[in-house]
């Protein structure tokens, strides 16, 4: 006769309500000392990367050589996914754009957004009901 409780529910996290956690947790920078396609990447690692790393302490950054291969940046995300971008023959500033793209990504697979608003909350106005109000005169 009393109220019973359903004990299987779990609260849902909402990133950005309260605390915000950047979804990119790690970035790998791979370069080659010899190949020409890594020229821009080598310049980026020397000039812009220290500044970027200092500005984003929440991202773990690794730099490692990958001889005889094109330079690659790999972003690792909190949901377990990773995204990689090949930056061959790009200038340091172009590479910085790519790095910022990886930083801002959520790690989700890219999807076409068809509905402008997505929400886990119920509509404030409720769903329209034909059984309420004056009704429609036929």
């Amino acid at each position: 006769m009393t109220v019973l409780a359903i004990k299987t529910l779990v609260s849902t996290g909402r990133n950005g309500v309260g605390a915000f956690i950047l979804q990119c947790k790690k970035m790998d920078f791979h370069y080659c000392d010899w190949a020409g396609s890594s020229k821009g990447m080598n310049g980026f690692i020397k000039s812009a990367l220290p500044e970027f790393a200092a500005a984003h302490p929440q991202i773990e950054i690794t730099v490692s050589p990958r001889p005889s291969k094109h330079p690659v940046i790999i972003g690792h995300y909190i949901n377990g996914n990773q995204k990689s971008i090949c930056v061959r023959n790009l200038e340091p500033l172009q590479i910085l754009k790519k790095v910022e793209l990886l930083r801002d990504a959520s790690g989700q697979k890219l999807k076409k957004v068809r509905k402008p608003v997505q929400s886990i909350n119920d509509s404030v106005r409720g769903v329209w009901s034909p059984y309420h109000g004056e009704g429609m005169k036929v």
């Binding site: 009393t2 109220v3 529910l9 609260s11 996290g13 909402r14």
Partner: peptide, 23 residues
């Protein structure tokens, strides 16, 4: 507050009733 309280839960889904009219 920012990491745990900020999570959301629909409290109305926690209820289960026996004999709601009598209650």
């Amino acid at each position: 507050k920012s990491h745990i309280m900020s999570r959301t839960l629909d409290f109305s889904k926690l209820f289960e009733f026996k004999n709601p009219t009598r209650e």
